[in-house]
Amino acid sequence: MANLSRADVEHVAHLARLGLTEEELARLEGQLNHILDQYTILTTLDTEHIPPTAQTIELANILREDVVQPSLTADEALANAPERSGGHLVVPAILGGGEGGA
């Protein structure tokens, strides 16, 4: 049986930046555990001889040559920006968190 705790649900919600009410957290704890229980059925199957799969489409090696294509204009790139300043997109400051520079 899956045993996702309330703390796990809160952690996952935080990683997804979802603000959940007490009621929602309680409901999701039940639902997520239920979903995980469904998946545990799969673990009863013998997969010993099946290679791991990450893709279901039968494609491989789709590469493009290193050739420059036209970009959007800065104006087009920012067309949907809620706010701009000097060619930049403006967002509320978020300090800390994030990886920054990969």
């Binding site: 294509q69 970009s71 959007l72 204009t73 800065a74 790139a77 920012l78 060619g87």
Partner: peptide, 8 residues
């Protein structure tokens, strides 16, 4: 210039 080398 900022955002001049971007695409979708």
């Amino acid at each position: 210039a900022p955002n001049s080398h971007c695409c979708p």
